[in-house]
């Protein structure tokens, strides 16, 4: 491999194995494990292992994208731009999955797919912001300019996302756990059994997203090498 070419190293094998192990464990325990029986929630409580890690994953991925964008602005390495773009796209994917799993959960506990809940609205707007990032990226001919402008937008979007997701929903009433006087996740989990699956689930999904972003960033670098 020519060392002057921008190159991103693949994820270490240990992390890949850990992702796979955690994933198998989470899926097995997620479907077959014991869960507390609660009125209304019933078996849908298992969604905790799939819906909530999506949000953790999305926030971490978008944070990573903002950090790589900042690094791009400071040092102008093509690898940082590829990382930022790939992480943002994975963040969007995780956000969409989080929204869909959340809507399914809402249908069976709150009684509607979409109830205009502040958390739902905020996450939909957050997704729109990052979809706009992809539109912005695709509308520049010049690669350097594209990378620079979209890095700046990415940082701006991340700073607009934080108040949107964490501060504004707290100002209004919400049905979502942990908001508007509703108890958070710990109140539903009296014996701590679910934590033994939940934390591995967060690790598994986040690593999975990181792995996918790594592959996608490396693919982008390879594709850019082909003269158009």
């Amino acid at each position: 491999m020519n060392s002057t070419r921008p190159r991103i190293s693949p994820l270490p094998l240990a992390l890949k194995l850990m992702t796979l192990l955690c994933m198998v464990y989470v899926f097995w325990m997620g479907w077959m494990g014991e869960v507390p029986r609660k009125v209304i929630l019933n078996e849908s409580v298992r969604n905790l292992y799939f819906h909530v890690p999506m949000w953790f994953g999305m926030i971490l991925m978008l944070l990573g994208a903002a950090v790589y964008s900042l690094r791009y602005l400071l040092f102008q390495h093509d690898t940082d731009d590829a990382w930022a773009s790939a992480l943002t796209q994975m963040g969007i994917l995780f956000g969409m999955l989080g929204l869909i799993t959340g809507m399914v959960w809402a249908q069976f506990t709150w009684g509607a797919w979409w109830s205009g809940d502040p958390k739902q609205n905020a996450s939909a707007i957050g997704l729109l912001m990052y979809l706009a990032y992809t539109v912005l990226r695709s509308s520049f001919e010049d690669k350097r300019r594209q990378a620079r402008i979209s890095a700046a937008y990415n940082i701006l979007a991340f700073f607009c996302l934080i108040p949107l997701l964490f501060i504004l929903p707290r100002l209004t009433d919400s049905l979502h756990p942990g908001n508007g006087g509703n108890p958070g996740f710990s109140a539903y989990d009296l014996d701590g059994r679910m934590r033994w699956v939940f934390y591995p689930a967060v690790i598994a999904w986040t690593l999975m997203g990181w792995w996918a972003a790594n592959l996608w960033a490396r693919y982008t670098l390879l594709r850019n090498r082909i003269p158009s």
Binding site: I125, L128, M129, S139, L164
Partner: peptide, 30 residues
Amino acid sequence: LVSAMARGAANPAQLMPVLGFPLLVPCLLL
């Protein structure tokens, strides 16, 4: 800021609302 970003893009007039509206919604809620 959005206007400065959209300058030099292929479709600046379209980018203004596409980038601006989602960024402005949190402000508009307040």
